[in-house]
Design a protein around this nucleic acid. Structure first.
Lengths: 200, 200
DNA sequence: TATAATATATACCGACCGGTATGGATCCGT
DNA sequence: ACGGATCCATACCGGTCGGTATATATTATA
């Protein structure tokens, strides 16, 4: 049996770690800073997570992965017209996330860029999340083909890979420019790319 | 008058710093590691660069900026058919860079993701490099419109922003997947996007 | 060649890092 | 209510970090 209080502490730590990592990156994220935000101490942290790496991986799986699934995958998979749902997400994603998300970048992409070449465990975990997203987009395109919305000559797998890549690229560039309008302009072009996959 | 030997030392340090930063990122890049590669010591480094930040900024400006200009901007600006040059670069960029570039990612994008939200000087310098690239692509599209290759209803500025964003996105995702073939597949889609801007 | 300026090496510093050891508080099944 | 497990706080450790002070070697100038 596990106590409610302990679970709450674990959650508090996860959330604070997510914020610190989102702002500074994983390597620059300081255990001391994370703890300062929570009011807890090292005793609590190292009780729930044996190492900083395990904390980071838990953030990836339980916070970033979950959020991305809820934000992007679920709406597409639950829609009767997945392509329309995808296009809607591309157009309106900026309204569905916190305003500082463009400034801080996509948590998934940030960590991929930082950690994939350094730590195979991070790479594997991040890749899993990415693949789920890619597969969802691919599924939307294939479903669109079956419904007659997407041209049959479109290679769904390649197109899905590109959509996800360009998406992350748009956030990344907008983050560097610290410009919300650049992000919207960029996503508009992605929208028109997806439209170009549709039957006339 | 400056000595040849001193300039060479400075260059050695810059190059070693670039490699270390490319592999680990700026924050995780260790002064000690950089020096170990060069055979020089802190005395030399801190004679040429007052701080780690100034070393990083010099790497951005003198190594990354120069390389990107030579690799991407110059071929487009010097071509009589800039759109063709752009398409050629998109198709063949993987042959023009070291084989580990896909594995380590684009040095410019890596630093943008890591540093833009943390350090305004890095942000400004990286943004300058990015803008030069964006402007080059925009110029290629506008020139293409004048030549009748690109549709006149294309918003060159937005399209250029998207092309650069998607480009970096492709490298980023391929880096995470550690897959050269994914990169090529992704760039192929970018190629078809640019083709979709051309007159039939 | 004497001298001043430049260039590099070495030893050292305080700050911060992730991690550990240990003791106390709290909860929980019996 | 008692004993054991879970949960958390405190103090501390070795190591690494960027940076500095200083002495020495090299080079440029006169």
């Amino acid at each position: 049996m596990k106590s409610k209080q302990a679970d709450q502490s674990r959650n508090t730590l996860l959330q604070a770690a997510f914020c610190e990592i989102h702002r500074k990156g994983y390597q620059a994220a300081s255990i001391a800073n994370i703890l300062q935000d929570t009011g807890l101490t090292k005793g609590a942290l190292y009780h729930h997570f044996p190492t900083k790496q395990s904390l980071g991986l838990a953030v990836v799986k339980e916070v970033i992965g979950e959020n991305l699934a809820k934000l992007l995958c679920d709406p597409i998979r639950q829609s009767e017209d997945p392509v329309e749902a995808l296009l809607y997400l591309i157009s309106h994603i900026d309204r569905k996330v916190a305003p500082d998300f463009v400034m801080l970048g996509c948590p998934l992409n940030n960590l991929m860029q930082e950690m994939s070449a350094l730590d195979p465990e991070f790479k594997a975990s991040l890749n899993g999340i990415l693949k789920r997203w890619r597969d969802t987009v691919e599924w939307a395109l294939i479903t669109g083909q079956k419904r007659g919305d997407i041209r049959s000559d479109v290679d769904a797998k390649s197109a899905a890979l590109f959509i996800v890549s360009a998406w992350e690229g748009c956030i990344g560039i907008a983050k560097n420019m610290q410009s919300n309008s650049a992000f919207k302009s960029c996503m508009k072009q992605l929208h028109s790319y997806v439209m170009s996959l549709c039957v006339k």
